[in-house]
Design a protein around this nucleic acid. Structure first.
Lengths: 408, 408
DNA sequence: CTGGTTTCTTCGCAGTAAGAACGAAGTCTT
DNA sequence: AAGACTTCGTTCTTACTGCGAAGAAACCAG
């Protein structure tokens, strides 16, 4: 039985590593902070704080950035985090596209590439495409391989904790013989982290979006399928088999339409992109016209088109049933809606909140904020890069050694 | 932003505390293990292991229990955990009853008391009753106050993390001015831990029941209301506001009966005890007879009564919808059903599993076991005591100092 | 009985954080 | 403007921890 206890043994070096991480995290969070303030907050002794800061300075992760305001005595030296000390790579594999982003340690995108590709059907070509895009973003900013801490990859499939590189053979059968993590690790010689796209959307929101200060966050990705990602105690929650958050086939209306999965009224048959566009076409009465896109639906709703508004209202209604269940079950501090359709903002939030209010415990509802994402279409790729950042802030050794010369 | 990193600073004493906890946990888990084996598994040096074991022996938590089998050389001395070193108190507050259990450090009940009481309406009398029952179980085993590590209390209400002693003013308004934790702490001078009953059922299963070896576990309590508790990474998950797992009003059938909450087809209106008994009465055609009990329903189902079987089938059907949603959302390793009705076993599990299979992702379904509880009606009280055990195994200082004399 | 193995303890060593003392750099009062 | 007081950061000593080598004890095999 392994019942939630620290499983890590500690020696002197481990003690230093732990305190060092703690400081690194604090400096990263605060952006600038003095040694004295760190000592006060951590309750570490001033001498210890100084010693660790020297370490961190030597590795190039932090540096002095001038004096702060006095508190009645000598002015403190502010220590700042070096956002540019290392770069991160985030890759997003969608159903039909591949993107790569190069970010700094503050989640800022310094280079970005996008390409359409039949990801599901063509693993080999996809991996080749990824290599091209990653090289492109690295070259665009002339970033040496040495200063990259690692690579995160978002995949459109659940990821089993014990085989992080493998995609689900049921959902993406063509990838059966491919290992995303292994092939990219050997291609670039970098640490590679893989996770589900919705999970990384959640991580992105937790770090750079609406989830700031929130420990427990739920993210719902509205797209072809409906996926959710959950941050619990600041960490992505993956479940025992890595399929936590797969809510496409949650039943919300037993009298709804038949789904390919065999059930009636699955979330995806009611509010998946295909269903929404189909409904919009019906209401607009333009069956003959060429394919409608989500973008057009969003623009229509914003322009006040009744049909588009009606579709969004329906989305809010059904999504509310699922969100209410999620609130009662998980009680997150915040629910963030992502995916292109979420850009309609309040047009979606108003009916959604109304629907949720009717169904959720008033206490859990009162403590939960429901918002739409403000991070845009790069959120997933940035979330992938964030996975590396998160790991490296915990274990400094992930930041490659460099700057071996003494910085007087 | 506090993004899931160790928030604890470490010094030399903290290092020892952490390693000490690690060893204590291992000895507790293994029941008996040699120093050499501990050193191999933890990768701590033999000298360190010996030193810590001396510490633990001095505090009375472990002791030598003879020699083990040789691995080709000197026979190892086995160290065993002293299950009787301290006692734990677990209290359960139900809607209409109060129970108190005295357990050892292995979850064995050494004394148990039960009393009916109008808990919801009478806070003052309830607390008085708790004091009586606790004194009774202590006296029954002649346990001195000194050897009790603490008291856990299960309450029929969500518990907000920041105010653990307060019950929900919405669900239990009469308790507005009472603080369970504070009043019992001052009454007994012991550490008091409070949590929701379903959460503690989950904890109980994780330690003593079906969840052994499972880190992620979901427990569903089938009673007047439907509550669920979740163990995530070995810890009770409470959510941001403490209301995680309140699934009574999860919507599973939009064409179902009207619920007091305003919605149609809430779980509780379909499978709450009242609904099940009502349905059974209808099917049995004995509207005139006196009130049916859950016990009678269980016995009827076991005896093969068609009406009872049909009610259980319906329970399995609806519960399956909720469990499927839970699997897709949280993907636990195991789902445990508790509450009196769950004692029908396979009669419930068969239709439940069939219902779930139709709705859950096949991958998450494949990895999840669904079982009924085997712990009986004391599970919640024992879970409350387990809350203390869990805390004390992490932080040894919760075990009160005694045995100050040298044990040569 | 002898050589090899395993277990556990003892002792010196290295690494870490704590704490006291101190100089440096400001602020504030007079 | 001068001196007292406060805060900041460093240096040095001390205490504690875990590690590793060495050794004693206990056991097995031939």
């Amino acid at each position: 039985m392994r019942v939630g206890t620290a499983v890590t043994t500690v020696d002197a070096a481990g003690m230093r590593a732990q305190n060092s991480s703690l400081l690194l995290n604090m400096i990263w969070r605060e952006r600038q902070i003095s040694r004295a303030e760190i000592a006060r907050r951590t309750e570490l002794s001033p001498s210890t704080v100084s010693a660790i800061v020297v370490d961190l300075e030597r590795s190039g992760l932090v540096r002095s950035i001038g004096a702060g305001v006095s508190r009645g005595g000598r002015r403190p030296t502010l220590i700042g985090f070096c956002d540019d000390a290392f770069s991160l790579i985030g890759v997003e594999l969608g159903a039909t596209h591949v993107t790569a982003a190069l970010t700094d340690l503050r989640g800022r995108v310094r280079a970005y590439r996008h390409a359409s590709h039949a990801v599901r059907e063509d693993p080999k070509g996809t991996l080749q495409k990824v290599r091209e895009l990653v090289h492109a973003v690295l070259d665009a900013e002339r970033v040496p391989r040495r200063s990259v801490a690692g690579m995160g990859v978002a995949v459109p499939s659940p990821v089993h904790p014990s085989t992080p590189g493998k995609l689900s053979p049921l959902l993406v059968p063509a990838w059966r013989d491919y290992d995303v993590q292994e092939s990219l690790r050997s291609a670039f010689g970098l640490p590679v982290f893989v996770d589900n796209d919705a999970n990384l959307g959640a991580l992105s929101e937790c770090y750079w979006g609406a989830g700031v200060n929130g420990e427990d966050l739920a993210y719902i990705k509205l797209a072809t399928g409906i996926g959710s990602g959950h941050i619990i105690h600041g960490d992505v929650y993956r479940g025992a088999g890595g399929t936590a958050g797969e809510i496409s086939h949650m039943a919300v209306d037993s009298s709804g339409p038949q789904c390919v999965c065999g059930l009636r009224g699955c979330l995806v048959t009611l509010i998946g992109s295909a269903a929404l566009l189909e409904r919009a076409r019906e209401l607009m009465g333009r069956k003959d016209k060429r394919t409608l896109t989500v973008r057009e639906l969003v623009e229509g709703a914003r322009a006040g088109e009744p049909a588009a508004r009606q579709v969004i209202d329906g989305l809010g209604h059904y999504l509310g049933i699922a969100v209410a269940g999620l609130l009662n079950l998980l009680n997150p501090a915040i629910v963030v809606l992502g995916g292109e359709i979420s850009s309609v903002g309040d047009l979606l939030l108003d009916p959604l909140r109304a629907s949720v209010r009717k169904r959720a415990l008033s206490t859990s509802m009162a403590e939960t904020r429901i918002v739409t994402s403000a991070l845009g279409d790069r959120a997933i790729a940035v979330g992938a890069a964030t996975l590396v950042l998160q790991a490296a802030l915990r274990d400094r050794t992930l930041f490659p050694l460099q700057h071996l010369g003494k910085s007087a």
